[in-house]
């Protein structure tokens, strides 16, 4: 990987996944999705709205905490991000814990809004940097939100999953992930070795395209400044705009 960091790659991929959306919402503790959404907005030339939870400047909500969820139920949010301590091959996500319930041996914060948003937002992007068999499991220990449903009002669900290794799309008919591309420096074998479930995979899997210079300049300039309002520490770690008289900074991986 040269010229850009993993974080910058992920931000650029997220922006591509959001193309064509009218309104993208970003939940708590999501600096990379937040940056990706702000990048997508800046590339949409005024066509996209972005709501970043925890932001004053990039959050137009005036009806309190319930507004995000009401917007989703009304079909006014096109894309949202969810994660999971565990994710399985059917797109089920677990944000609660492992080793029994309610007395979980490992307890995570909780389901937040996932048991609702996953059902209602058409393009849910599962974002989880750690791509290991402890996260990508055959079956989640607790279903905070199921990947698919039958006989239930459900306009929403998983659209893609982005990790530190690869990008997958979710096939809602087959209820399975399909490997779409592998990030520079990684291989299909590595993805397979680190995934605890089966997924669909073409004979030849392309490499995830990285950000070009124009995109990098935006990420390191205006996007970094905007995301700093909510995630100052994250923004400080994003590479600063490059001074052409200085040699390029080595990639932070």
């Amino acid at each position: 990987m040269s010229g850009f960091s993993r974080t910058e790659l992920l931000v650029a991929v997220i922006a591509r996944l959001l193309r064509g959306c009218n309104h993208v919402a970003v939940g708590a503790s999501s600096p990379i999705p937040g940056s990706g959404a702000l990048l997508a907005r800046s590339l949409s030339e005024g066509q996209m709205r972005v709501s970043v939870l925890g932001s004053q400047r990039n959050n137009f909500f005036t009806n309190g905490g319930v507004e995000l969820f009401d917007l989703a139920a009304e079909g006014r949010i096109d894309a949202f991000f969810l994660g999971g301590g565990q994710i399985d091959g059917r797109g089920n996500i677990n944000l609660v814990g492992t080793g029994g319930y309610p007395r979980s041996e490992v307890r995570w914060p909780g389901s937040f809004g996932s048991a609702y948003m996953y059902f209602l937002v058409p393009r849910v992007i599962l974002f989880r940097e750690e791509h290991t068999r402890r996260v990508m499991v055959p079956q989640v220990d607790f279903v905070s939100a199921p990947g698919s449903s039958e006989g239930v009002h459900r306009p929403g669900g998983p659209f893609a999953m982005l990790t530190a290794l690869a990008l997958f799309y979710f096939d809602r008919e087959r209820r399975r992930f399909r490997l779409a591309s592998v990030h520079p420096g990684h291989s299909v074998e590595e993805v397979r070795d680190n995934t605890g479930f089966e997924f669909d995979c073409a004979a030849i899997v392309p490499e995830t395209p990285g950000p070009d210079e124009t995109i990098l300049t935006r990420i390191r300039g205006p996007i970094r400044e905007e995301i700093a309002e909510v995630y100052p520490r994250f923004a400080a770690k994003l590479a600063a705009p490059r001074d052409p008289s200085q040699p390029a900074a080595p990639p932070v991986v």
């Binding site: 969820f69 814990g97 007395r103 490992v106 809004g113 048991a115 609702y116």
Partner: peptide
């Protein structure tokens, strides 16, 4: 995460009612 919360969960000293944000609202 909340360390005392996780510990109380392990110890089973809490009556836990996991919810989801919009359900509370």
């Amino acid at each position: 995460s909340g360390p005392r919360f996780a510990e109380a969960i392990r110890a089973g000293t809490l009556m836990m009612r996991d919810a989801t944000c919009p359900a509370v609202y």
